[in-house]
Design a protein around this nucleic acid. Structure first.
Lengths: 239, 239
DNA sequence: TTTTTATCAATTATCGATAAACGATATCGC
DNA sequence: GCGATATCGTTTATCGATAATTGATAAAAA
């Protein structure tokens, strides 16, 4: 019963959230809820919470010195992404199908980005120069074996495309998948050829530049499918 | 300032919610929150709340005789679907781009269902007989000019495909779009050829049956695109 | 008059406490 | 002993109240 909240508390204190998401649709929610969500997200993805583990609202609230309400709201956000499952009046659990669920996201990202790429290509609304810039950022990061930086640039890259589609709802859903956090953790897995990952974005740029929306959208989807076969973070990372 | 909450109060009393969504992933959330969300959803889609209107938590809570918390949670759910926008500490508003936003959903549905259809076709996991059944249900409804029934069968039809894809996250996102409610209201618009709508599902079945996943997914997407040009409910319905 | 600053009212974000539901355990009757 | 039922503790769902933030207003200074 006496959980080890020492490292957790410190982790929380160390957790510095950046609100620098200069998004169109302002997604900066209430600090507390946002922060809680982020911490919980990292714990789940990082494996600190085991698959199927029950997440008790009051326990978490107590741990963080907050009240129950913000925890509830954070858990609900998480529920939307499928990382936790909550049965009414029976509690919230880390999704049992976690390792499977982690892989599910690529099909969804694929679907959203396929469509986003199609729309953006048709509208020619994509800033190719900026994409190129992010690609270069990825290459530099890969060369330096800087996983975090690579993830950051990759997320920006894909986000540019998604936003270029000019569909708020699409962007919202994409953002709600917490791709930023997931990507960072995914790339922590060893045995990934970072430079290959970086370079794989090249053909997306080319396809969009070609103006062939069907080709571009297909490339965008297949880009995601490539990640489905990677090992999941859980199997490698320890809490 | 003195809003007209008389008819609203009565509307609420009349609102009978059914929890008969026999879903795999149990989406029966807390009754109160669920109910509130549903009512607010209908008001927004039906135009009872105007575009850009501010939704004040305590005011709504008072109207329904609940406390602030469930209202907050309902509004948050709605935010995920893009129907309302809430700026931190500054309140929640009905999305200004509502009529535009209502149309945005078709691109998103198209994206999700395109992928779902692709996966389901490859896996051959789609129960074609049931699809056929729903199609017949649609035809009967169309013949009887029963908009609500048509919507119901249509939603089931598409839901079968989405669930057949076997991707929980995909299903979750699709469900979170509140397609059930939206469809019902969309089809209330006059000037829609119901039988044509019903029959348009025929080619989806055929495409899936053909086993050609690329063709099937394309047909599924284009099916959604057909609705993008329809007039939005708001322009026709009065509160 | 225009600009700046202080105060106010309204509303959100959060809290602490209560009510209600669920699962598990213990008890009773057979 | 075995199965049905009452009781209990735990946890969620909800409540009512408080704290804190924002935009607007009014007063003061230039």
């Amino acid at each position: 019963m006496t959980e080890d909240m020492s490292e957790l508390r410190s982790e929380r204190a160390a957790e510095a959230i950046d609100f620098s998401t200069g998004s169109d649709t302002d997604f900066v929610n209430s600090p507390l809820r946002q922060r809680l969500k982020d911490v919980l997200l990292r714990r789940i993805l990082g494996g600190a919470y085991k698959s199927g583990e029950r997440l008790i609202e009051l326990r978490i609230a107590e741990e963080f010195g907050t009240s129950q309400a913000p925890v509830r709201e954070a858990l609900r956000d998480l529920e939307a992404t499928g990382l936790v499952i909550s049965k009414p009046r029976r509690g919230t659990y880390v999704a049992k199908v976690l390792s499977e669920g982690l892989r599910e996201i690529y099909a969804v990202r694929g679907a959203l980005e396929e469509q986003a790429t199609r729309l953006a290509t048709v509208k020619q609304s994509c800033d190719l120069a900026t994409l190129e810039l992010e690609l270069q950022g990825m290459r530099v990061a890969a060369a330096a074996d800087d996983h975090a930086s690579l993830a950051e640039h990759s997320v920006k890259f894909h986000r540019i495309i998604v936003e270029a589609a000019g569909n708020r709802l699409l962007t919202n859903l994409w953002l709600s998948l917490n791709i930023e956090t997931r990507t960072t953790i995914t790339l922590l897995v060893d045995g990934i050829d970072l430079m290959e990952v970086a370079d794989s974005h090249r053909q997306i740029i080319d396809a969009i530049a070609s103006g062939d929306s069907e080709r571009a959208s297909r490339v965008a989807r297949e880009h995601q499918e490539n990640f489905e076969s990677l090992p999941t973070p859980n199997s490698n990372l320890r809490e």
